[in-house]
C-alpha cells in the first residue's frame, strides 16, 4: 500500500480549486510549506496572505475576507489553529456563520518528536461544541482531496483535521464521498469498529488479526464528525451488538463521546474506546508513540476482545 500525507492532498487540491475559482484565497501563519500551502502561494501570490505567527489575527482576517465574498482556506498546525484562537472561532466565525475553512495539519500524536505541545489531541472536542461548525477527519490522501473539494462548494465554518506523517492510502478515487455520510470500509458481524483519520488504517490491520481468531469485524470510516451520520452508526451496530471507537484524540470529548451519546439514546450496547486516556503525549517516533499509547492495531485488537466479552 502506498503511503502519502493527508496534508499533501490538501496542498494539491487547493491549487487545483484555486485555478477554477478565483474567489478562493489562502491564508497562512508562517507554516506555509509545512501545511502544503506553498503550491497555491507560488501560483497565486495575490490571493495568498501570510499573517505571520498570529493565529487569532489569522482567523479574523479570514472572517473579513469571507464577508466581502471570498472563500478563505486558512491553514496552520492543528493544535494552535483550534486552541489558540478558540474564542475567535466561536465568537467571530461560528456565531456569524462565516464561510471560512480551517485546515489543521500536524494533528494527533503522529507529530512525534516535536512532543506534547505540538500534538493536537483535543481539537475535535473543542471544535465539536461550537454551533454551526462542521468537522472533517479524512482517513487518507485521496479522501482528503474529496473533503477539500466538497467543502469548497459547501457554505459555513469548517474544520479539517490532517496529519503531517505519511499514512497508508486506503480509499480509491472512485469511492463515493458525501458530506455527513459515513463509509463502510469492510463488513462483519461480531463487532463494529468506528474509526476516524489514521485509525481507519489501524482498524484494517486489526480486522485481519481478528479474522485469524475467527472474529468478524465491521469497519465504519467516520470522515465527517459533524454533522455526524446517526443513521449509519445506529444501523451498523444492529447486527454486531457491540462496538469499539478508535481515534487519535483524547477519549474525553472525542468521537467516542459523540458515538456513545447516539448509541446510549437509541440502542445501548457495550462500547470500548481506543484513544488518549486523559494524558499528554511526548517526544518519540510517530508509530512508536501510537504503540506506546495503545493507539495501534494491537490496542484495537485488545479493545475488540474486551468488548466481545462484555457482549451478552
Amino acid at each position: 500500500m502506498e503511503n502519502k500525507a493527508t496534508r499533501v492532498g490538501y496542498g494539491e487540491k487547493i491549487l487545483e480549486l484555486g485555478r477554477e475559482n478565483k474567489n478562493i484565497v489562502v491564508l497562512s501563519a508562517d507554516v506555509t510549506a509545512s501545511t502544503s500551502s506553498h503550491l497555491f502561494a507560488k501560483e497565486f501570490p495575490d490571493r495568498f496572505f501570510n499573517v505571520g505567527i498570529s493565529e487569532q489575527d489569522l482567523i479574523c482576517e479570514a472572517a473579513g475576507l469571507s464577508l466581502v465574498g471570498k472563500i478563505p482556506f486558512v491553514s496552520a498546525y492543528a493544535v494552535f489553529v483550534t486552541g489558540r484562537c478558540w474564542d475567535q472561532i466561536r465568537n467571530t466565525l461560528c456565531y456569524s456563520n462565516l464561510n471560512v475553512k480551517i485546515i489543521g495539519t500536524h494533528s494527533g500524536i503522529l507529530v512525534g518528536p516535536d512532543g506534547a505541545t505540538h500534538q493536537a489531541l483535543e481539537d475535535i472536542a473543542i471544535m465539536n461544541v461550537i454551533p454551526n461548525m462542521k468537522i472533517f477527519s479524512p482517513c487518507d490522501y485521496i479522501e482528503t482531496k474529496k473533503v477539500i473539494e466538497a467543502i469548497s462548494h459547501d457554505f459555513g465554518p469548517t474544520y479539517v483535521r490532517l496529519s503531517r506523517e505519511k499514512t497508508p492510502v486506503i480509499t480509491k478515487e472512485k469511492d463515493s464521498f458525501t458530506i455527513g455520510k459515513a463509509n463502510l470500509i469492510a463488513d462483519g458481524y461480531d463487532v463494529t469498529i468506528f474509526a476516524t483519520g489514521v485509525m481507519v488504517g489501524e482498524a484494517i490491520k486489526a480486522r485481519e488479526f481478528l479474522a485469524h481468531e475467527h472474529i468478524s469485524a465491521k469497519i465504519i470510516n467516520i470522515h465527517t464528525i459533524k454533522p455526524i451520520d446517526e443513521e449509519t452508526i445506529i444501523n451498523s451496530v444492529m447486527e454486531t451488538g457491540c462496538s469499539v471507537v478508535a481515534e487519535e484524540h483524547q477519549i474525553l470529548g472525542g468521537l467516542g463521546s459523540i458515538i456513545s451519546q447516539i448509541l446510549a439514546k437509541n440502542c445501548p450496547i457495550p462500547i470500548e474506546f481506543v484513544g488518549m486516556e486523559d494524558k499528554f503525549g511526548e517526544s518519540g517516533e510517530p508509530f512508536e508513540l501510537l504503540k506506546k499509547y495503545k493507539l495501534d492495531s494491537i490496542g484495537l485488537l485488545n479493545a475488540c476482545k474486551k468488548v466481545l466479552k462484555r457482549k451478552k
Binding site: 472572517a63 473579513g64 475576507l65 462565516l98
Partner: peptide, 19 residues
Amino acid sequence: VSTGSLGQGLSIGSGMALG
C-alpha cells in the same frame, strides 16, 4: 459582523480591506 468579544474587530476590518 457579530462583535462583543473584544480585540477582534480590527482583524476583521483588515481582512475586509484586503479583499
